[in-house]
């Protein structure tokens, strides 16, 4: 005999597991005094190139390291290793984003006390990474001048969740008739007050301002002493 269906109230966060792991990571990073910066963007927006330049420049003053997520290859890790900084690859296979558990696993055996800055390059994807907190202090979203000024409006969730927008490949801005006003308007619409920087990893334009901003944010938080 079947009874009538009845309603049972529950209240469960579907992302609970990831959120708990991210919170644990954030506490560990805080204890170790390491400032953690993640990068998200579409594939090809220039994450690895910007990171290689950043690691190379920052190493003169800070102890830096990087984790890099990629679906299948280890190419990005090899490129980043050229900077001389410790780098680990997270091959995600079919998974289109990093999650906090992957970050935790890939940190095994690393002494975080020995680091000032840790960078995490997410898988190139403007959708899935938005749902996963990695325990980072700062999330950068990259938008290259070649990919269209309306990207923020097509992917509002990821742009809204970022702490800094970096417009990359500005050496190509003129050639592709990049519309600065439209891009900033789109960014501002989905995230009022979002700070925006322009860089070219190729020519070095804007790099000093970018590096200075990272350092000042870290110092403000009392990290990277």
């Amino acid at each position: 005999m079947k009874s009538e269906p009845r309603i049972v109230e529950v209240r469960q966060n579907v992302f609970r597991q990831n959120d708990v792991t991210a919170r644990e990571l954030r506490a560990r990073f805080r204890d170790a005094g390491v400032f953690v910066i993640s990068l998200v963007s579409s594939p090809g927006s220039g994450k690895t190139t910007l990171l290689e330049k950043t690691l190379t420049a920052m190493q003169k003053q800070w102890r830096v390291a990087a984790l890099v997520g990629d679906l299948a290859t280890e190419n990005d890790a090899r490129r980043l290793e050229r900077s001389g900084a410790p780098v680990r690859q997270i091959v995600t296979g079919t998974v289109c984003h990093l999650d906090a558990a992957m970050v935790r696993r890939s940190l095994e055996g690393w002494d975080l006390d020995e680091l000032d800055f840790l960078f995490i390059e997410n898988v190139g994807n403007l959708v899935c990474p938005a749902s996963y907190d990695l325990g980072e202090d700062m999330r950068l979203v990259l938008l290259s001048v070649t990919e269209g000024e309306d990207k923020p409006q097509k992917y509002p969730t990821i742009f809204h969740g970022a702490d800094l927008a970096v417009i990359t490949k500005v050496d190509l801005a003129e050639a592709v008739e990049f519309d600065r006003v439209a891009a900033c308007g789109a960014l501002c619409a989905v995230s009022p007050g979002l700070q925006v920087l322009e860089v070219s990893a190729k020519t070095g334009e804007g790099m000093d301002a970018f590096l200075g901003l990272l350092a000042s944010r870290a110092i403000t938080q009392g990290l990277a002493r």
Partner: peptide, 16 residues
């Protein structure tokens, strides 16, 4: 933002 980031299971319809 005070709401709208969540994905929550709020209730189950069940039978014994």
């Amino acid at each position: 933002v005070i709401d709208g980031r969540e994905l929550l299971v709020t209730a189950l319809e069940v039978e014994s």
